[in-house]
């Protein structure tokens, strides 16, 4: 492929272009998750009986997953730290660890869902479960997307190229993490 357009190298606002785009991306994602969460909250507040279903979520799995995601975010910070020091290979290793955290999160989620579905709490079982699977499912798809992007970024970072991407994918990962911080209390703790 050819090089970047000159447009990409300009920075009239002073914010690096890619980072600016990530901010806008996160902005658009916030409204998507905002839509899901506000819809859920409006229903939840209007239907106290949902607490019966909510009581069947496994808080400790959710808690471990919260811990895993927070830890992986810390790894992403480490990756950024080394990328700043132009140590691409080390940054890539931290990115792999971050992605591994995402993988663990997904495995645990799969185990959790498997148990719930086999107990009959499927997506159609009750409105609570519909929201539970939809909200967490949309979040999980973002975790998967984040992991894939991270692996690509790690490939280039290893060669000490495009190191600014390490920070950008990290920003995105923190956002995905933050969404979970909202989901966890709403889906698990609020019984």
């Amino acid at each position: 492929m050819h090089g970047k357009p000159i447009a990409n190298t300009r920075s009239a606002t002073g914010i690096p272009t890619a980072k600016l785009a990530v901010y806008w991306l996160i902005g658009s994602e916030i409204v998507i998750f905002g839509g899901v969460l506000i819809s859920y909250l409006m229903h939840r507040l209007g239907h106290p009986e949902w607490a019966y279903d909510a009581a069947h979520t496994q808080t400790w799995i959710g808690a471990i997953n919260t811990f895993i995601l927070l830890t992986s975010s810390l790894f992403a910070v480490q990756a950024h730290h080394f990328a700043e020091k132009k140590e691409g290979a080390t940054a890539a290793r931290w990115l792999y660890l971050t992605a591994l955290g995402g993988g663990m999160f997904l495995c645990l989620k799969a185990y959790e869902w498997y148990g719930e579905i086999s107990h009959g709490y499927t997506i159609t079982a009750a409105p609570f479960w519909s929201f539970y699977y939809t909200a967490a499912g949309i979040h999980a798809s973002h975790v998967i997307a984040g992991m894939i992007i991270m692996l690509f970024v790690a490939q280039t970072a290893k060669k000490n190229e495009e190191l600014h991407r390490v920070e950008n994918v990290g920003l995105y990962w923190h956002f995905v993490d933050l969404v979970w911080i909202f989901l966890f209390p709403l889906l698990y703790i609020a019984k």
Binding site: V31, S39, T134
Partner: peptide, 25 residues
């Protein structure tokens, strides 16, 4: 567009589930 379409994206997922998975959003 970006600021307004998000909730409808979420709504579209919910409607698609209602249509095809049998949820009742």
């Amino acid at each position: 567009f970006m600021a307004s379409v998000g909730p409808l994206m979420a709504g579209a997922v919910m409607l698609a589930f209602d249509q095809n998975l049998g949820t009742h959003f």
